[in-house]
Design a protein around this nucleic acid. Structure first.
Lengths: 138, 138
DNA sequence: AAAGTGATGCAATGGAAGTGCATTTATAAT
DNA sequence: ATTATAAATGCACTTCCATTGCATCACTTT
């Protein structure tokens, strides 16, 4: 039983070949991916399986969903320091307008946001768009 | 030539009956609306016309697009104090998980966000989700 | 009035999300 | 080990929203 399998057990997720492959795929990527990205990487697998696998991962807090404003949902592994459930721990995401990639800036926490009286804040989504380090050449 | 027509002229947008109606519809609403909302309000009009009208408004900085994470694009009039082009002037949006409405909090500016070296910030999208004042009963 | 440009309507397409059902595979019980 | 049970997978659809091409209509300009 390797590391990933132990992790799955811990997260109460059954180990299957497909799930291991998808997990490894996500782990290799440094950026958030769309369902289509995964689909292209595993041509043999059915889209529904990939879809449901990601949903399972989401339910079990293995990946988190990112809405970067492109209209297409992206996913990324929850890493050390990413505790998705806790609001104070939400990190921000950066979307590059050039290469179209979305990156989790795990170290960058979202600042305290004040909302008007009567409003109750439960969740915050912050996406910064611009040019990423690879594209800016800085 | 009334106020709205003058405004259209200023924005370099031709005045048509449909555009006036859509503008008035948006002005009446205090919340961001989807294309379908507009469609339902104007059953007689074609969806494409509404779609293109909104696109025109967007191009001419009459409305701005909001991505509140519901997966459906919403639109709201750019009001006084909403200068969409200028980053420092970006306001935040509040999405109510109860009534599903999205509101522009025009007075609430987005705080300065620091990004890592090499990253260039061009645009920021900040959506706070929770319960709005009408639903919270506070 | 004629010509030209923009606005509108109709039809159709494409992409992504989501669901129902049958089948296979894995886990648990005997 | 064999059977019973439950979950995972694959296939076929469906739905919803966004978007485009093309023909037509309206308006502006000369």
């Amino acid at each position: 039983m390797n590391e990933i399998e132990k992790f799955f057990a811990l997260k109460d997720v059954r180990v299957t070949a497909m799930r291991l492959l998808i997990y490894k795929f996500l782990a290799d990527k440094q950026v958030a991916v769309t369902l289509s990205d995964i689909e292209n990487a595993f041509e043999k697998a059915d889209r529904t399986t990939l879809y449901r696998t990601i949903k399972t991962f989401e339910d079990k807090a293995i990946v988190h969903q990112i809405d970067d404003g492109t209209g297409i949902t992206k996913y990324a592994l929850c890493e050390k320091g990413c505790n998705c459930e806790i609001e104070a721990d939400l990190h921000l995401h950066f979307h590059c307008n050039n290469c179209n990639e979305t990156i989790c800036l795990t170290e960058h926490k979202i600042p305290q946001i004040k909302v008007p009286n009567g409003f109750v804040s439960e969740d915050i989504n912050l996406v910064v768009k611009g040019i990423c380090d690879k594209c800016s050449g800085l």
